[in-house]
Simulated scan of single mutants.
Amino acid sequence: MKREMIPTFDELERHKKMVPEINPAAVLAMLSIKNASEKIQQSILDILQREYHLSEGKFCTLLVIHQHGKQGIAPSELASKVGVTRATISNMLQRMERDGLVNIRPAAQDGRAKVVHLTKSGGDFMEEILPPHYLRVSRLMEKLTEEEQKELILLLEKLSA
């Protein structure tokens, strides 16, 4: 679904007459970033859903677990990194464990704590889907030169700080 919600520069200028602190260029820049981000994210998520039957949450969860390798990750830390509640991550992990993608085991240093690891099947799955995923992302960014990509990274980090 395409949303058309970016105002014109003239419209923003009219609002600026009422609230002088409005910066039309800043508003347009931020809305353009949001619009581009949504389009890119949706194109990526469509492929993950269609080809691998992965929701955004499941993909992000598997990716974080994959990044933690053999040491694994505590469910609470995983929930924090993925940006979901502990209850949500618990439900996701139960389904992933049932599907043979993850193991949830007691932590070595504290038997009451849990640690999540990818199973061999889960690791193989991630090794299968990540290279083409990163290739798709790379191709999306080919519209910018490498120098422009690096500049964009710095600008977005500056905005996020």
Rank of each mutant, 00 (worst) to 15 (best):
residue 1 M to F: 07
residue 2 K to G: 06
residue 5 M to T: 08
residue 6 I to G: 12
residue 12 L to V: 06
residue 13 E to Y: 10
residue 19 V to P: 03
residue 19 V to Y: 13
residue 21 E to Y: 05
residue 22 I to T: 11
residue 24 P to W: 11
residue 25 A to F: 13
residue 29 A to L: 12
residue 29 A to T: 10
residue 33 I to M: 10
residue 33 I to D: 11
residue 35 N to Q: 10
residue 38 E to N: 02
residue 42 Q to S: 08
residue 43 S to W: 01
residue 46 D to K: 10
residue 53 H to P: 00
residue 55 S to A: 03
residue 59 F to M: 09
residue 59 F to Q: 05
residue 61 T to N: 04
residue 65 I to H: 09
residue 69 G to E: 09
residue 70 K to V: 05
residue 74 A to R: 13
residue 74 A to E: 15
residue 76 S to E: 13
residue 77 E to V: 07
residue 78 L to W: 11
residue 80 S to R: 14
residue 87 A to Q: 14
residue 91 N to C: 02
residue 95 R to D: 06
residue 96 M to S: 02
residue 99 D to E: 15
residue 103 N to H: 15
residue 106 P to Q: 14
residue 111 G to N: 15
residue 111 G to Y: 12
residue 118 L to M: 14
residue 122 G to M: 02
residue 123 G to N: 14
residue 126 M to V: 07
residue 127 E to Y: 04
residue 127 E to H: 12
residue 129 I to R: 10
residue 129 I to W: 02
residue 134 Y to G: 04
residue 136 R to F: 08
residue 136 R to P: 06
residue 138 S to E: 09
residue 141 M to S: 14
residue 141 M to I: 06
residue 145 T to C: 04
residue 148 E to S: 13
residue 149 Q to T: 02
residue 150 K to W: 01
residue 151 E to A: 11
residue 155 L to D: 04
residue 156 L to F: 03
residue 157 E to D: 00
residue 159 L to G: 02
